[in-house]
Amino acid sequence: MADTPFIPFTRPSFDQATIDAVGEVLRSGWVTSGPKLAEFESALSDYFGGRPVRCFANGTATMKIALQVAGIGEGDEVITTPISWVATSNVILGVGAKPVFVDIDPITRNLDLAKVAAVVTSKTRAIMPVYLAGLPVNMDELHSLAKQYKLRVIEDAAQAIGSTWKGHKIGSIGDLVSFSFQANKNLSTVEGGCLVFNNLDEAKLAEKLRLQGVTRQGMDGMDVDVLGGKDNLTDVNAVIGLHQLKQLPQFQTKRAELARHYFATLRQEMKTAGLESLNLELPPENFTETNWHMFQVVLPLNQLHVDRAQVMTELKEMGIGTGVHYPAITGFSLYKKLGYQVSATPIAERIGKSILTLPLFPGLTQVNVEFISKSLVAILKKHAK
């Protein structure tokens, strides 16, 4: 494999026009938040059906500010999932609230909405679902629950730009919707994110929260009436986002094409290897709602003489990068100290120990997918009980 290029689990796609546009911004002398940011926010608002949009330095800031805009703080509870990047629950702790973890659905690996009602208390103020790998939860059921219990909904749609629910883009409907534009996302600004609002008042509050609480008052005056931070997005990032947004449809088409090839090749390779009894728990085969941000399998560790780390090591030795998205948050030391137990969400515990993210990005080829599939199945066959 020494002369074969390594296949990472993800890689951003930046064309020459994007690179040239970044150079133009750098030469303009205006590199922090300015005209390109305003243009990007306007383009995103159009994309989301005219809803107000504000951009931020990263997708963690978007969730933190969403919680602040919703008025969530000390003593409040927010229902969420244990299978996510830890930022989802960290921001809840960060505003003084308590994350309440609900187990996941074993098929979608998203928050199991059927289990939400059982944990609602008088302190519950919001529900924060995560759209793992871009697949949304049942939006009708989500907002029905929110209405029933008078909860705000903060959608952690970090991975879901381009995904839909019944033909509506995620972000074009709902309450507060948070997206990440980090380097591995379907639309990348290298680092960054955006928040979609219901009204301009909440958007204007978020503007203040992202830049020290400052309100401009004419050419020579300013005021500060809320405690804000430093979470603004720069024009350098924004111009990358403008070009990525134009390319998003073709990125989506390529990702769906590659996902279809994964389904076909993995199933064929498993059959050829006589491993039909090994269930890789492939993701829901849905090509209308998800954006195929990631392609994940769940290793049948109880049928293998090997752990996930060894499978990943052997794939790496073959020139294939993989990822883990995600271990259960409740298993981290910080959360154990706070009294959480990973065993309280057994499905998340099992999935978190065995989920494996395979390479998927627009620059990948079908030949790559075939090589990855054959390599993984060969490793499984070698270690099968």
Rank of each mutant, 00 (worst) to 15 (best):
D156G: 08
T124N: 03
D140W: 03
A61C: 07
T80N: 04
A158T: 13
A158K: 09
N58V: 00
V95T: 10
D105H: 08
G134A: 13
P52F: 07
I79Y: 06
A160C: 11
A118C: 05
N58E: 04
G162F: 11
D103N: 09
I104Q: 05
V95A: 11
S144V: 01
R125E: 11
A66N: 02
R152S: 12
N138H: 05
G134T: 09
V119Y: 06
A157L: 12
I72N: 04
L113A: 06
C55W: 02
N138R: 03
V86T: 15
P106T: 04
A97I: 01
D76Y: 07
I92M: 10
G94N: 12
T81D: 10
D156P: 03
V69I: 05
K123I: 01
Y131R: 07
A114P: 00
L111M: 13
G134S: 12
Y149R: 04
E141A: 10
L67D: 07
T121P: 02
R54M: 10
L111N: 07
V91N: 06
P129R: 04
V153S: 06
E155T: 13
K115Q: 14
L111H: 06
M139T: 07
L93Q: 11
A114D: 15
Q148P: 00
A97S: 07
G73P: 02
G75R: 05
A158L: 12
A57T: 03
M139L: 10
C55P: 00
P82K: 08
Q148F: 03
A66W: 00
V95D: 11
A157G: 14
L113Y: 03
S122C: 02
S122T: 08
I83S: 10
D112C: 04
L93R: 13
G162Q: 13
G162C: 13
V95M: 08
I161G: 10
G96W: 02
A87R: 10
G134V: 07
A114I: 00
V120F: 10
A133Y: 14
P136Q: 12
A97K: 01
A61M: 04
V78T: 07
C55M: 05
P52N: 09
T60D: 14
W85N: 15
S144N: 06
G162S: 15
I154R: 04
I79F: 03
V130Y: 15
I79W: 03
A118Y: 01
D112R: 01
N110S: 12
V120I: 13
I79C: 09
M139G: 00
A61L: 02
V53C: 08
E74F: 02
V53R: 02
V86P: 06
